[in-house]
């Protein structure tokens, strides 16, 4: 490798460096935000287990209405929807695990 080769290589390195410093493409951040597929992946579960009262139904938050809705939504399982959620914590030497008797989304 003679002098010219080294000069050539160095020049190429410098040009690459300049390119990446000043002309490199911006990371496509906005694309990630707008990407609906990403949203889907994270909300699939929450949609499925979402048991909020739909807003276009008559708003009477009495227990009986809620029960009716649960019946519509869960059928046979409606009786196991309402109730107190209980939380249990267990500790071992390496882990501390908290369980719930109901999903706490």
């Amino acid at each position: 490798m003679d002098k010219n080769n080294i000069i050539g290589l160095t020049l190429m390195m410098v040009m690459l460096a300049v390119y990446f410093q000043f002309f490199s493409p911006e990371p496509p951040v906005s694309e990630i935000i707008d990407n609906p597929v990403v949203d889907n992946s994270s909300s699939k579960l929450s949609e499925k287990v979402n048991n909020e009262v739909p807003s276009d139904l008559p708003l009477d938050p009495s227990d009986s209405t809620l029960n009716q809705l649960n019946k519509l939504k869960y059928g046979f399982f409606a009786s196991k929807i309402a109730g107190e959620e209980s939380i249990i914590s267990l500790t071992t030497e390496e882990l501390e695990v908290t369980f719930t008797s109901k999903g706490g989304l």
Binding site: Y74, F77, K80, A82, K102, G103
Partner: peptide
Amino acid sequence: LSKSISLKDLIFES
């Protein structure tokens, strides 16, 4: 009965 049931929604006895 054509409803999707999640064990996550049900209250269990512990």
